[in-house]
């Protein structure tokens, strides 16, 4: 069964084989029908990338608007060699790893709760859509206020519960500030993961669990041997989405921390933004953007590869 389904389950990433054989007019129709889409995408993919190549290989400093010599890979080399890139890279990796782990854990556990019978779970199945529906910058704003060091409701709550002795400066602490970003990120994107996992869970045939029960399987064993194999493709998709999403996180940083304190939350996207809009170095900004794009593309390809292997062996 698993094998028969593998292509369908992989559907999200690879194109199934179409059966209709093209004939003259149909062939024309096919090209015509995808042309508008291709044009839109190409205009904002091909030209920008080509343009970025030009920027990245030239000197483009806005305070010196008439001087653009060719510099080859110097911008890329300077960015890669800089201490700040290494720091931002490390921060981004830590952040990405944290959000991937937290969002996946949230998705799996919460979806199990949502899959329970009962009113509360039913209510939560609706409620969980709300964070997903709220634009990410709004989520950032909301959490920024909750974590506010002077008047924040979280500090008030924790103090009244006796969990902390006095108000904590969440954004003033280089360890807590990234944590606030992770929490806001999980709040915003965890629900989507939970909904996706829930959709998968609901597709698991009940009788599988029943036969496992008869065999005396524990809850863990049922999860390990029945649920998990079903969840795996969904989790892999989430893994890609979250890795790429974590890697290019910008909105939350812009709204919540501005990269601080110090450079504790200065993720690569933020670093690129600062290079472009604050340091006015378009050449370096473009070089940095390329590095980010290369990493995300590379990661995605690795994952897709893993998915294919997965499909072969499942």
């Amino acid at each position: 069964m698993a094998r028969a389904n593998s292509r369908q389950r992989l559907g999200p990433l690879i194109l199934g084989r179409a059966t209709a054989r093209p004939r003259g007019r149909l062939q024309w129709y096919a090209y015509l029908s995808i042309l508008p889409a291709l044009c839109f995408v190409a205009l904002f993919a091909v030209y920008p990338v080509a343009f970025s190549v030009r920027l990245a290989t030239h000197r483009y400093v806005l305070t010196d608007p008439h001087n653009h010599p060719f510099e080859g890979l110097r911008n890329v080399a300077e960015v890669l060699g800089s201490y700040y890139f290494r720091r931002a890279g490390l921060t981004t990796l830590t952040f990405t790893a944290s959000v991937v782990a937290s969002v996946l854990a949230f998705g799996v556990t919460v979806s199990h709760y949502l899959n329970r019978p009962g009113r509360l779970a039913g209510f939560l199945r609706v409620a969980i859509l709300l964070p997903w529906a709220i634009p990410v910058v709004m989520a950032g704003i909301i959490w920024k206020w909750i974590f506010n060091g002077n008047y924040g409701v979280l500090n008030a709550l924790l103090v009244s519960l006796g969990l902390i002795p006095s108000y904590v400066s969440w954004f003033g602490n280089p360890i807590l500030a990234p944590l606030t970003l992770v929490i806001a990120h999980v709040w915003k994107w965890g629900p989507l993961a939970a909904i996706m996992c829930l959709a998968t869970l609901q597709a698991v045939p009940r009788d599988l669990y029943e036969s496992a029960h008869i065999d005396g399987g524990s809850g863990w064993a049922a999860f390990r041997y029945i649920t998990l194999p079903f969840l795996r493709p969904t989790l892999l998709i989430l893994l890609i989405l979250e890795t790429v999403g974590g890697f290019v996180t910008f909105d939350l940083v812009y709204v919540m921390t501005g990269g601080g304190p110090g450079d504790a939350t200065s993720l690569l996207s933020w670093f690129a933004y600062a290079e472009i809009f604050r340091f006015l170095d378009l050449g370096k900004g473009a070089a940095l953007a390329f590095i980010i794009a290369a990493v995300t593309l590379g990661l995605s390809l690795v994952y897709v590869r893993l998915l294919r292997l997965e499909a072969l062996y499942s």
């Binding site: 305070t63 280089p174 990269g259 601080g260 304190p261 110090g262 200065s266 600062a274 340091f279």
Partner: peptide, 22 residues
């Protein structure tokens, strides 16, 4: 200087790291 503004933005983050003892 023409680059003071950039240096200033950079300095704010560097100084914070020092204030925090990093």
């Amino acid at each position: 200087t023409p680059w003071f503004a950039q240096w200033d933005v950079f300095a704010r983050a560097e100084l914070q790291k020092a204030y925090l003892g990093q």
